[in-house]
Amino acid sequence: MRLTWWFRKNLIRIYMVLGFTYLFVPVAYTFAFSFNNGGKSNLVWKGFTLGNWQNPCGAPDVCLALGNSIRVGLISTVAATFLGTLIAFALGRHQFKGRSTTNTLIFLPMATPEVVLGASLLAMFLNLGINPGFWPVVIAHVMFCISFVVVTVKARIASLDPRLEQAAMDLYANEFETFRKVTLPLVAPGIAGAALLAFSLSFDDFIITNFNSGTLTTFPKFVYVASARGIPAQANVIGSAMFFLALFIVIAGQLVNKRKAR
């Protein structure tokens, strides 16, 4: 009886432990196999080594692909965050005709399967005689990141207390000063969050990139192509390092927020 009682009381906790296990087993696998001394094929455990971490660029082309991904990610993030933030301000702070059309245009790219986005862009580039490669990939990434930036920044703008801006105006700040000294600092965390989201979407994108990249190899594309003949353990090193880096950024961001709140 007591056992069933304990079980019922902790059902949700047991479930959560199982859920998190499901979430983390593949990550643990990726991390564990970054220490595998498996040579070119990394599917079977062959012994422990630190070599892959000491020499993450040891496998040919893996760092080249990583560099391409970072370059594409940074350029797309800056452009998409800028364009998306402007749209978010228009939607969050202004009344204008064509509002619902704009909302639909923002929503549609998110509701379109990636394979359609990728295929349609490539078909257009080919028709125009533009070769797939670095810039077509950047253009595509900016396109699908804009919507996510708009949604993230708009949510932040909507959560602001409009009385703060009114107070600034009452204190004789003009519209531009109010925006620069009150609105923008308050929205900034939302913009930072949107930029992080855009970078991670761009960095991890495979389907749209695969259609528009031509001979350019990004990190996900490298992994996909390599998966047919065995992925070098260095790819696992980079995947795990990205995991810890992102975790560090998110936790540091939360700690900074907490300190500010105090």
Partner: peptide
């Protein structure tokens, strides 16, 4: 913390995680 942990696995490349399932 738990919310961060839900998102955290997705910072490892989507393809690497899919390949990890192939191994698991």
């Amino acid at each position: 913390l738990l919310l961060v942990l839900v998102v955290a696995p997705f910072f490892t490349s989507f393809l690497l995680r899919t390949i990890a399932w192939k191994q698991i």
